[in-house]
């Protein structure tokens, strides 16, 4: 039991969140999301680890030999699959966004921006004051 993997996980999560919050480039943003996800890898592997034990493969070890927790490793494996799917999907979205808008800066694309209103400040105009 050591605190190091948990500290690393917390650090990765915080760094990833900071990167997401301050990102000005969509590809950088996708990378930051992967950093956040790495926090879960570190956390899960840290939780499942047992000192002085083998990998959970009993081919050349007698059953009953202390092994690290295979459930955690299965969780991490699933997590990696999820991560690959998400990264691929996000990069596809990024490519499509770049094709349509010619920019990768999230500040330049707001979902409900008014056409021909680059500032986008008045985006979803209030229905209360239509004539303003």
């Amino acid at each position: 039991m050591t605190w190091l993997p948990y500290a690393v996980a917390a650090w990765l999560l915080a760094a990833g969140l900071y990167g997401l919050a301050s990102s000005r480039n969509l590809i950088h943003l996708v990378g930051c999301l992967s950093v956040c996800q790495s926090a879960t890898y570190a956390l899960l592997l840290g939780l499942g680890y047992r000192w002085g034990s083998i990998a959970p493969i009993f081919y050349d070890h007698p059953p009953g030999t202390p092994a690290v927790d295979p459930v955690m490793q299965a969780l991490v494996l699933t997590d990696i699959v999820v991560g690959a799917t998400l990264t691929a999907l996000l990069l596809v979205l990024t490519v499509q966004i770049f094709k349509r808008t010619g920019t990768l800066d999230p500040e330049q694309l707001k979902p409900m921006r008014r056409r021909g209103d680059p500032a986008g400040a008045d985006a979803p105009r209030s229905a209360e004051h239509p004539s303003r």
Binding site: L93, R100, P111
Partner: peptide, 15 residues
Amino acid sequence: ESALAGALNFTVINS
């Protein structure tokens, strides 16, 4: 354009 931007926000937060 707007669908992509909306989907991106949705994807990042829900991931």
